[in-house]
Design a protein around this nucleic acid. Structure first.
Lengths: 246, 246
DNA sequence: GCCCTCCGTTGATCTGGGTCAATGCGCATA
DNA sequence: TATGCGCATTGACCCAGATCAACGGAGGGC
């Protein structure tokens, strides 16, 4: 189950290194982090953890895509988080998970034992600070998502989703893609529907509609070509203020 | 504009004291916090801050109710936060606000100058820790809210909202109300509609429907009597796991 | 008292997206 | 080459909730 990373650089032992934002961990701190971490891999479709599970680790997503899902008994489900590389799973200070976590592609996690990680947060303020920053960024993203779920039309939802993926797609070296004209969808139609509060039929119809209107082209099921990103942005109903979007 | 609190006990100078969760600030730390704080009051309906405003303070809501709102140009708006006493406004590490903040009742804020507050967070780990905890609690609440917006029916939305208010209503002494049979609505029908991703007409109709079915009784526009909370919970579509709900 | 305004309710009608059902399209296995 | 399975698309129909419009009732000013 545990397998070493071939390219260790993808995941420095400091969780806040992922985004190449913080390089403040000194050698001693890295040693501390290394002592409580391990890597774990999951294959596509595998359940990483389920709601209610006791969890003695927190983790940072190194590679792949995972989803955070909330379900009602009758089968309705809503994605509440789309986890891409650098995202964090689990929370310090709570031992049970609130959501189902599923690997939608092959996934590698960098796990930290929760208790020592919490201790470490208290001792190393800038890691704590980074954790807060990440949590607040996620909160901002969740709020934009709430606007999408509550007030946008199906077409706007699809366009917003495509913009979101385009913005979050990064090169292995950490830079945002310059060529955003091709968008690789990390999730299936079903997951997209659960992300957007729609049904798969509606998702499919909206893709067809956007294609017929020349806003997008489809290249297979998982690849979208956008001739003009500005047009797509217009369709998304977003304020075009260029503000930070996680 | 600035007026002293008559009952200073409502707002200890330590923001994390609000919830009576943390009483770890020692005297020196309280002195530090007092040095950078001030109180500010707003009257019902007043705009506290608007999206894009530069903000050099963060604040804790002492009394009253405020809303966090996100709007699209064409007039559609979505509440993305309902701020009740003890909730936090603004974020350390960011100077501009992402949302419109409005006082829906008379409101008193305990404000902290942002820069010294951020410095203080680095120096006092348990306050930083509490900030993280609050952010993660809000994130959990936002995710439950996303399930509501994306997947629940109008009736379930109303029932969920009533349960939410019931759970969050607290006595002045900080204890959760034992008598939850009367729910005082902190916001108008319009704000509820914006909270739930509905129109005011639908909100009104659902209230009428729940009343006709004997699930609730209405006492004026802002007060709801719930003969049996369990019935209401059933209507809300929530997992009845009694898990922590902010 | 009267008028006006703000909110909320109710009714009639419309429609976006859900539901149900059939079809298509790889891709793997035999 | 056929068989089957997992996704995605398309079509026909329906309904929950939006929209448009009228009405009611509680203040508040004069």
């Amino acid at each position: 189950m545990n397998k070493p990373l071939t390219a260790i650089d993808n995941c420095s032992s400091c969780p806040i290194r992922h985004r190449a934002v913080c390089s403040r961990c000194d050698d001693d701190e890295l040693v501390e982090l290394n002592a409580i971490k391990f890597y774990k891999s999951y294959s596509a479709g595998q359940t990483i953890a389920m709601r209610g599970d006791a969890l003695d680790v927190v983790a940072s997503l190194v590679s792949g895509t995972a989803t955070l899902e909330r379900a009602i008994e009758d089968g309705r489900t809503q994605l509440v988080g789309l986890l891409l590389p650098s995202d964090f799973i689990g929370r310090p200070g709570r031992s049970t998970l609130q959501y189902d976590v599923t690997a939608v592609t092959d996934v590698t996690l960098c796990c930290f034992y929760r208790k020592p990680f919490e201790d470490l947060l208290v001792r190393i303020p800038h890691v704590q600070e980074r954790m807060l920053e990440m949590a607040l960024d996620e909160l901002d993203a969740a709020r934009d998502w709430m606007l999408l779920l509550g007030r946008k039309t199906a077409r706007e939802k699809i366009a917003s989703f495509l913009m979101l993926i385009a913005k979050r797609t990064v090169h292995p070296d950490g830079h945002v893609l310059g060529d955003t004209s091709r968008i690789e969808l990390p999730i299936s139609r079903e997951a997209m529907a659960n992300f957007l509060g729609l049904t798969i039929e509606t998702v499919s119809r909206q893709f067809t509609g956007l294609r017929k209107d020349g806003v997008i082209e489809l290249d297979g099921n998982r690849s979208v070509i956008v001739p003009d990103l500005e047009t797509l942005l217009l369709e998304s109903g977003d304020d075009s203020d260029g503000g930070p979007l996680i």
